[in-house]
Amino acid sequence: MKFAVIGGTGLIGSKVVEKLNAGGHEAVPHSKSTGVDVITGEGLENAAAGADVIVNLTNSPTFDEASPAFFRQSMENLLRAGQKAGVGHFVVLSIVGVDQVPELDYYRAKVLQEDILTAGPIPYSIVRATQFMEFVDAVMSWTADAATVRLPATPIQPIAAQDVADAVAAVAAGEPLRGIHNIAGPEVFSLDELGRITLAARSDGRTVTTDDTAGMFAAVRGDVLTGKDDASLAPTRYADWLASR
């Protein structure tokens, strides 16, 4: 099978391309660096031509109120190019619990992306993942100073990027789900606890202070960002991931 992996040079995309090609498929990475622009539409028809599957792993450059416009325009352009090329399966990567945090602009934008896909002309699959282990440093940086990291006690279930890529590749190589496949890491932590574990593993002397008003995840209610009974659990544990870095 031939796959057009849009956003195929990024953290997840590059791993999806590698996984699919290792499985005997032809996966071609596309991004701005290869001449494909999902907003202007430049290069999209050529990227979709001959593809059996489009895997869309592009992301909004911001997490604010500008993100819905990005996802609307990019999805409309990609669906148009895919339909013209006769693509039979369209896959996107989303977030576990994304439809339960309407307070966040970015999460509402990802719901919009899902809605455009499900209403579109191409059979589809949505893979929803929990928070990436690779993003923990960025999350801590939002509310950190030289001595302290402030984090809410929001429950999360971190998953390694490689495990996400493996799941996306498996779904993309299968029949369209016309629905959602949830994936999560094997362990649940509160975000403040995860911060303490991370700093201790790195002998970082800063202190984590629990602050349920700090950062983007302060808006999350309860355990909506954790995998429920229908989620497939990935194998990589956070301590093992940390040790491998």
Results as ranks from 00 to 15, higher is better:
Ala167Glu: 15
Ser232Leu: 06
Glu134Tyr: 03
His25Gly: 01
Asp137His: 09
Lys32Ile: 10
Glu114Cys: 05
Leu177Val: 07
Val164Gly: 12
Asp163Gly: 05
Tyr238Ile: 00
Ala170Phe: 02
Val96Glu: 13
Tyr124Arg: 08
Ala81Trp: 02
Ala169His: 03
Met133Asn: 14
Ser141Ala: 15
Asp230Ile: 02
Ala243Thr: 08
Val16Thr: 06
Trp142Gly: 00
Thr198Lys: 10
Pro68Trp: 05
Gly8Val: 11
Gln83Val: 00
Ala119Asp: 14
Leu44Ser: 09
Phe217Gly: 06
Asp240Arg: 09
Ala85Gln: 04
Ala81Phe: 12
Leu191Cys: 06
Ala81Arg: 07
Ser94Trp: 02
Ser14Pro: 01
Trp241Gly: 10
Ser203His: 13
Val111Leu: 08
Asp229Tyr: 06
Leu11Phe: 00
Ser33Lys: 13
Thr9Tyr: 04
Thr34His: 00
Thr236Phe: 06
Val91Pro: 14
Phe71Cys: 13
Val224Asn: 05
Ala218Ile: 03
Val96Asn: 12
Val53Cys: 15
Gly35Met: 04
Ile54Met: 14
Gly8Cys: 12
Gln131Ser: 13
Val17Lys: 08
Asp37Met: 08
Gln100Cys: 02
Ala160Gln: 02
Asn182Asp: 15
Gly195Trp: 13
Pro121Ile: 02
Lys110Leu: 11
Arg221Val: 10
Gly13Met: 05
Val188Cys: 03
Val171Leu: 04
His181Gln: 15
Phe90Lys: 01
Val111Arg: 09
Phe90Asn: 01
Glu103Trp: 01
Thr130Glu: 08
Gln162Arg: 11
Asp105Gly: 01
Trp241Asp: 02
Lys228Leu: 07
Ala184Thr: 09
Ser31Leu: 08
Ala144Asp: 08
Ser60Asp: 10
Val168Ser: 11
Gly120Ile: 07
Gly23Thr: 08
Ala167Arg: 14
Leu191Gly: 01
Phe217Gln: 03
Lys110Pro: 05
Asp115Ile: 00
Gly13Phe: 08
Ser14Glu: 10
Leu104Arg: 05
Val91Asp: 14
Glu193Met: 10
Thr209Lys: 11
Val91Glu: 13
Ala47Pro: 12
Gly174Asn: 04
Leu79Asp: 06
Gln100Glu: 15
Val101Glu: 05
Gln100Ser: 13
Leu93Val: 00
Ala231Leu: 05
Ile39Tyr: 01
Gly8Ser: 14
Phe132Gly: 12
Phe71Thr: 05
Met1Arg: 08
Thr207Tyr: 02
Ala129Arg: 09
Ser244Ala: 15
Gly179Gln: 13
Asn46Tyr: 02
Thr62Tyr: 13
Asp192Pro: 01
Val168Phe: 08
Trp241Ala: 11
Leu233Ser: 13
Ala47Asn: 09
Phe71Leu: 06
Val149Gln: 11
Arg221Phe: 00
Ile197Pro: 01
Ala200Asn: 12
Val171Met: 07
